[in-house]
């Protein structure tokens, strides 16, 4: 098992290299570059740059170099841990991301925990009380949850909270705390605000996970080991919690792999709509402005998370299921 994990860890740099090429190619793919969009912005506001200034900026950003040189320069700065310089902000990308990564993580993890804490008990209830009123209700809510785009839900919640209670549920902080340094009061303020985006971001995932949990559990509830357990005198509750739930959770563990990066990228539109200061809006803005080093760096982090998530779910699965653990590698 240890050898297997080590192999997987050694594979990460190789995968990251491949992804970096792909990410760079994608970010470069739209016509023009940062300067073209910069000049367009300037001219729309009435001012303009002369040719000499443009050439100077081009040289400064390295945009006059061939694409592969640009890639090599980006990789060099990545290897130094700097992630390059943002063209738009004229600041190291690493600073820009660091400013927002904390909130991104807090938001993503709280949405993740919310999803699991709600979905698993709900799925268990739904499966063990199959075809009862509450099961049907859960099913209907799940379909609505899966079918509603989360930015839509965000808009509805914002409108509802404002029209009914005059509350603004956007942002993660009250106005007075937005620029304030971290303090206990600011954390309390964050907790007051975080639950709405947490529910919005976690909603679709919760609905999907509940469905998966219910289906997995229904498969397990008819297995002969249930009959055998009942015949040994176990109570229904002991039996369900120890045997089928344990097995029904296994497939869920394997979804963590794609679930982690999805929470990061999935919050992009919601975060923009709700004005959340996490990485989502930063990525959107960098893509619009063709701030390629910033966009590339953020996308590469997503790739990294996907790799780590897959590895984590594989390890978790091996830990949960002895049949996988004991397989000879």
């Amino acid at each position: 098992m240890l050898r297997y994990i080590l192999q997987r860890l050694l594979l990460i740099p190789v995968l990251l290299f491949l992804f970096s090429v792909m990410v760079f190619a994608l970010v470069q793919a739209p016509p023009g570059d940062y300067l073209t969009s910069y000049i367009a912005t300037l001219s729309s506001s009435g001012s303009s740059l002369d040719q000499a200034e443009i050439e100077a900026l081009k040289a400064q950003f390295g945009l006059d170099q061939p694409v592969y040189i640009q890639y090599v320069r980006w990789i060099q700065s990545l290897l130094r841990g700097k992630l390059g310089l943002s063209l738009e902000y004229q600041r190291p990308n690493v600073e820009l991301i660091a400013e927002r990564i904390g909130l991104t993580l807090v938001l993503a993890l709280s949405a993740f925990v919310f999803t699991w804490i709600v979905a698993i008990p709900l799925g268990i209830y739904s499966a063990t009380h199959r075809n009862t009123l509450l099961d049907y209700l859960t099913t209907v809510l799940n379909y609505i949850g899966v079918a509603t785009p989360n930015f839509m839900l965000a808009l509805i919640l914002m409108w509802w909270a404002y029209s009914q209670f005059g509350l603004s549920v956007t942002g993660l902080f009250s106005r007075e705390f937005e620029q304030a340094p971290w303090s206990f009061a600011k954390v309390i303020d964050l907790l007051k605000h975080i639950w709405v985006p947490m529910i919005v971001i976690g909603m679709a995932g919760t609905a999907r996970l509940t469905r998966v949990m219910r289906a997995n559990l229904l498969d397990e509830l008819n297995k002969p080991y249930m009959t055998s357990g009942r015949a040994r005198g176990l109570s229904e509750w002991q039996l369900v919690m120890k045997y089928p739930v344990r097995l029904a959770i296994n497939p869920l563990a394997s979804t963590i792999g794609w679930y982690l990066p999805e929470i990061f990228s999935g919050s992009l539109i919601v975060a923009t709509v709700m004005n959340l200061q996490n990485i989502g809006p930063l990525l959107l803005r960098s893509l619009i402005n063709q701030d390629m080093y910033l966009a590339g760096s953020i996308l590469l982090i997503y790739c990294f998370l996907a790799i780590i998530g897959t590895l984590l779910s594989d390890i978790l699965l091996a830990w949960l299921d002895p049949r996988i653990r004991m397989e000879k590698t």
Binding site: P224, Y225, A231, R232, G233, Y243, L320, D321, P322
Partner: peptide, 20 residues
């Protein structure tokens, strides 16, 4: 169940949970 009347089920493979 289990102490006065015990069951020897049809398929021993399926009667045990694979994860215990």
């Amino acid at each position: 169940r289990g102490s006065e009347i015990a069951l020897i089920p049809q398929e021993p493979m399926a009667a045990f949970s694979p994860v215990y």
